[in-house]
Design a protein around this nucleic acid. Structure first.
Length: 778
DNA sequence: CTAAGCAAGGTTTTT
DNA sequence: CCTTGCTTAG
């Protein structure tokens, strides 16, 4: 079936280069026109290509102006990639389009319309840490902790409810308030929302739900956006939750003259294109509802569905494993990925004695792959939980393999960065007490908890903000020294707040020096403070870089952007480093070689998921996502013992392993036949060594010259230093764990000298001489 | 008000 | 294991 190209209002049809090289289904997905289109895109089936070519086609035929297109993704990285690829297809024209994440699109709308519904434009966004801190305080205030309410529990419950588009009152109507726990929760939620309102702040979930509420409450506002966006495209649709679904619904409603009087005639709803794969739905815990995609055709009248099954990413062996695994999920639309690019290498399996042994396998294989010409940046290591990075990092450092941890403990979570950010937030949003409290006594000004409580009490009494209370400190009975300190700080903050348009970098520099923050760090004798100083400097560099790329960017713009950065956004493929990340973060990415580690019961599937309805199926999808990230080589590994909470426990091979046909896997050491041997189990002792002997603190052993967001200093200095040790080929050495061996060669220079050693028992290893636990024998 | 020292508790995944 | 909170001494 060869569909003719749609013809635009001026007679333009789609240029051939946009259709070239597309398979029939992809072609159909680009050409189809109608109210609603579902593209079921299996992993690696070219969905981004289809989406971008579809957008380019709409522009080329002049069916749409750029400004009439709204493309929504989940991560900034996906948005950036789409923007770039559309740009390379249509050039300058792509500029007027909205290609944004759900959250950033909503922030933009909310800022524009803030005044309309009683918020200030300068609102800030609370991250999950802020939310927890706030709820914790509220729980304490109400004495609700005795009822067993925890900050984590309350915040996730509020989050879930908001994702279901509930507000306090609608939730109250459905709840059973006889239940004291529910009643207490309700009061906490009410407090929490009031606090947010007073702080002129939103949490993540508000960004979506408040936008929906805004549209519902003000039809003329909604109508403006409906009229503007004639084509709405949504990526990763299987991950949408109820609120996001409602947002899409709102945006694609028809526009009537009742709502927009200056309209000449009523307009039909925007055309909607969604792309997704229910087999890759892994965010149920965040409220994602798989029914949004499975029911799409029933939901949207006149919807058409197109299935993309041909895979352009992986070898057939990898796809066969993926198909076999996901086939164990019942209740799914049958879909079989295939490729015409050949079987490729077998999957490599390995069972280690410990997590360290497993990590050593990963390191050894990486050395093997890279010596075969593969770049570090084409290799990724996945794991289920962030805790698993420890062993991997230690071994990678020892082996001198450059790596980067994506997500996990982030730059913005470090104390000194949070301090600096709190200053910026306080300056941008004077109503926010949370950040103000954080910096009030940092650096030390003698404003302790008692003083803070007095200020807060005064603020509550007069119904003013904490910041206002500081200004009126004269009216509070406090010691002269403390009062002066408060007045000074208030004056400084006000001076900065008066310059909302200033260059964020200049502002930050000014803040750091005049607040005394830098001085405090500089004067300190704590060696970690030197590193903290570097990190703060790094933040200044980040703001500079931000300003360079957004010359008109204000402080509030900068804060918005940093609040919405996701783990996958940090990825920088130019790095020449192996990427370490959770299976969740891996979605949407691809690598030549992939390692999936910790494929054990209670880890994958994770223990907690066992009790949740649909939990096992979701864990299986997670495994499936991991498998399908690999282009050429897939490695699956597990350990017989796993160190958790400081103690070592036996581990059982994952049930998912049996779902992979055995002929697809080449087990170096199969799960069942392994016996603990004293020789190898030695590797487990590594964890007994004090961590300070290695680089502990932060993770990047080899910072890049560029990429300011990503490099920062380690806070703990290395203790071991072998840099004086001279090794030459032929030398005999003894290694703490590997025993004796002979040096084969030495490469690199200075702190990065690497010895290649053939150990008598443990085989060939690479060691970073400077930190390796070795001694030279004569 | 600050610093240090000790006990207890918590650990899935994240926009 | 690591972080956090609480207690105690200055």
């Amino acid at each position: 079936m060869q569909r003719p190209s749609p013809i635009g209002p001026r007679g333009d049809s789609i240029p051939e280069h946009l259709l070239e090289g597309l398979n029939p289904q992809q072609r159909e997905a680009v050409l189809h026109r109608g109210p609603a289109l579902l593209i079921v895109a299996g992993a690696g089936s070219g969905k981004t290509k289809v989406l971008t070519h579809r957008i380019a086609g709409l522009l080329a035929t002049r069916e749409a102006w750029p400004s009439q297109i709204l493309a929504i993704t989940f991560t900034n990285k996906a948005a950036a990639e789409m923007r770039e690829r559309v740009g390379s297809l249509v050039g300058e024209e792509s500029r007027g389009m909205w290609i944004r994440t759900f959250h950033s699109a909503c922030v933009r709308i909310l800022r524009r319309e803030a005044e309309e519904f009683g918020f200030q434009q300068s609102f800030t966004i609370y991250d999950s840490g802020d939310v927890r801190a706030l709820i914790k305080r509220l729980i304490k205030q109400r004495g609700a902790d005795i009822q067993g309410l925890t900050p984590g529990g309350v915040s996730s419950r509020i989050s879930m409810a908001k994702n279901e588009l509930h507000d306090v009152d609608s939730w109250a109507r459905t709840a059973n308030l006889e239940n004291p726990l529910d009643a207490a929760f309700l009061e906490l939620w009410r407090d929490y929302d009031n606090e947010l309102r007073r702080a002129n702040a939103f949490d993540f979930d508000d960004l979506i739900s408040q936008t929906v509420f805004l549209f519902r409450a003000f039809p003329h506002v909604a109508a403006q956006y409906r009229k503007r966006f004639r084509h709405v495209l949504v990526d990763e649709y299987q991950d949408t939750n109820a609120a996001q679904y409602a947002l899409i619904r709102e945006l694609t409603q028809p526009v009537t003259r009742a709502d927009l009087p200056d309209l000449r005639a009523d307009l039909p709803g925007a055309s909607l294109t969604v792309v997704g794969d229910s087999d890759q739905s892994i965010y149920a815990f965040r409220g994602a509802d798989i029914r949004n995609i499975t029911d799409f055709e029933r939901d949207f009248a006149g919807a058409r569905a197109i299935l993309l099954e041909q895979n352009y990413r992986s070898t057939q062996n990898i796809l066969s494993a993926a198909n076999a695994v996901i086939g164990n999920n019942f209740d799914r639309r049958e879909k079989r990925l295939w490729t015409d690019s050949g079987d490729g290498a077998k999957i490599v399996g390995y069972t280690g004695h410990s997590g360290y042994d497993e990590a050593q396998f990963v390191a050894d294989e990486i050395v093997e792959l890279t010596s075969g010409g593969m770049a570090y940046s084409d290799i990724a290591v996945f794991y289920r939980t962030n805790a698993q990075t420890r062993a991997l990092e230690e071994v990678l450092i020892r082996t001198a393999i450059p790596y980067r941890v994506i997500g996990g403990t982030k730059f913005y979570e470090r104390a000194e960065i949070k301090d600096a950010m709190a200053y910026l937030i306080t300056v941008a949003n004077p109503a926010d007490p949370l950040s103000l409290r954080r910096i009030m006594n940092v650096p030390k000004r003698g404003i302790g908890p008692a003083t803070e409580a007095a200020l807060q009490a005064f603020a509550d009494e007069h119904q003013i903000t904490l910041r206002d209370a500081m200004r009126r400190v004269d009216e509070i009975a406090l010691g002269p020294k403390v009062a002066a300190a408060i007045k000074d700080l208030a004056a400084l903050l006000d001076e900065w707040s008066a310059r909302p348009e200033a260059d964020p970098g200049e502002l930050l520099r000014d803040i750091l020096s005049r607040s005394g923050y830098t001085d405090q760090l500089r004067r300190s004798t704590d060696p970690q403070d030197a590193a903290r100083l570097e990190n703060v400097e790094e933040l200044v560099a980040v703001t500079r870089e931000y300003r360079r790329q957004n010359p008109a960017g204000t402080l509030i713009d900068f804060l918005t952007e940093t609040a919405l950065v996701a783990a996958a956004d940090e990825l920088d493929d130019s790095g020449g480093q192996v990427s370490l990340m959770t299976l969740h973060t891996a979605k949407g990415l691809e690598f030549d070689a992939v390692f999936i580690t910790g494929v054990e019961e209670d880890l994958l599937p994770h223990r907690i998921s066992a009790n949740e309805p649909g939990g096992q199926a979701e864990e299986r999808r997670l495994f499936y996502v991991g498998i399908t990230r690999a282009r050429q080589r897939l490695h699956i590994s597990l350990a017989m013992t796993r160190a958790q909470f400081g103690e070592v426990n036996p581990a059982v091979p994952s049930r998912f392993l049996e779902e992979i046909p055995s002929e697809l896997i080449d087990w170096r050491t199969p799960p069942s036949t392994m016996r603990p041997s004293p020789q190898r189990a030695v590797a487990g002792r590594w964890r007994d060594e004090p961590r300070e002997q290695f680089v502990t603190g932060f993770r990047d052993p080899k910072p890049l010259p560029k990429a300011p967001l990503k490099q920062f200093a380690n806070t703990i200095t290395e203790v071991r230093d072998n840099s004086g040790l001279e090794l030459a080929p032929g030398d005999r050495i003894r290694h703490k764990d590997f025993g004796e061996g002979r040096v084969q060669g030495v490469t690199g220079a200075g702190a990065k000298r690497i010895a290649e050693v053939l150990f008598d028992a443990a085989g060939r290893k690479r060691l970073l001489i400077k930190i390796a636990p070795i001694e030279k024998l004569d």
